[in-house]
Amino acid sequence: MRHVLHSAGEVTVRKITEHATTPGVWLKAFVSPETLEPWLAPGWHLAGGPGYLMSASLRVAPTRAPGPIPDGYQLHTWTRAGVTRALVRTADGAFAARGQIAVTGPTAVVDQVETDPVHQRRGLGRLVMHRLAEAAAEQGATAGVLGATPEGRSLYEMTGWRALAPLTGALRGPDPN
């Protein structure tokens, strides 16, 4: 189970974390780790590192289009059950980068964007983000949202996204320390 709190306060967080006792339950809130941690009930710990809620306007013809697919890579996109996936592979079929986006009315949610460290700094993340935004706009989405890590934030900002709020996760389960 996962709880995502759009307006987290101490009372709400305490209520959820005191009543959710099953290991593996997640809570995500738009507050800093320093704010969230003291609100957690025993048995909960911060998880996933600090992050950011980010958004962007989606257009059918984005203004920050990437260049051509770099030599030695192939981009594959497909849509199934409302989720568009983009996958970049090397010429020999090895994984290089990926991401996915789901359209829910006028909003699209980006998830699981990743570039293999061996293939970073070659424009593959920008290529994936552009194709996902293009696909969502073609399906009628006008705005996109995503949760970003500190490492991913610079890629997203370079492609026109902006940070709206901190995003912090907590997990019910054994303390990792």
Rank of each mutant, 00 (worst) to 15 (best):
L167S: 06
I16G: 06
G67H: 09
V118R: 05
M1I: 15
V118P: 04
A65C: 08
L164A: 13
F30S: 01
L167H: 13
E10K: 03
G173L: 03
Y156Q: 14
G160V: 09
Q100V: 08
H45K: 03
G105C: 07
R131E: 01
P66H: 05
D92N: 15
Y73T: 13
L75F: 14
G140M: 11
I16F: 00
L87C: 03
R80P: 01
G51F: 00
D116I: 14
P166I: 10
Q120N: 08
E151M: 15
G93D: 02
V110T: 06
V113M: 06
W161R: 03
T77N: 05
A41Q: 07
L5H: 03
T149M: 09
V83M: 05
P70Y: 13
R131I: 09
S57D: 12
A108C: 02
V4L: 15
R172P: 07
A97C: 04
G48W: 01
G99Q: 05
P70G: 01
V103E: 00
P62M: 09
A65K: 13
G48T: 10
G105K: 09
V88C: 08
A94L: 06
R59C: 08
R131V: 03
E114V: 11
V110Y: 02
Q139D: 13
H119C: 15
V4S: 04
G48S: 12
T79Q: 02
R121W: 01
G67D: 12
L155S: 11
V13A: 08
Q139A: 09
T17N: 00
G99V: 10
P176T: 15
A170W: 07
G72W: 00
T77F: 07
P70T: 11
A170R: 05
G160A: 07
G93T: 06
A102M: 12
Q74T: 15
E157P: 12
A102T: 14
G99K: 07
Q100C: 11
V103Y: 13
T142H: 06
G99W: 09
P50D: 06
L171V: 14
Q112L: 15
R80C: 06
N177S: 05
A165T: 15
R162L: 02
L87V: 14
T159G: 01
T107Y: 13
G123W: 05
A61I: 03
Q100A: 10
T104P: 07
A86P: 04
A94I: 02
E138L: 14
R121I: 13
G43R: 06
K28A: 04
A143Q: 05
T84G: 00
E18C: 07
H45C: 01
D175I: 11
P166T: 14
A170S: 14
P33R: 04
D175V: 12
T63F: 05
V109I: 11
V109Y: 12
S55P: 04
A102H: 07
T142D: 00
A141G: 02
G72P: 04
T168C: 10
R172S: 04
L46N: 00
L146P: 00
A94K: 08
P174T: 09
L46Y: 01
W44E: 05
T12W: 08
M54K: 02
W39H: 03
G48Y: 08
G140V: 15
P174G: 04
L132D: 07
L124G: 05
Q112S: 09
S57N: 01
R85Y: 04
E157A: 14
A8K: 02
G67I: 15
R121Q: 08
I101C: 01
G43N: 03
Q112V: 11
A102C: 12
P66C: 07
R2L: 13
L5K: 01
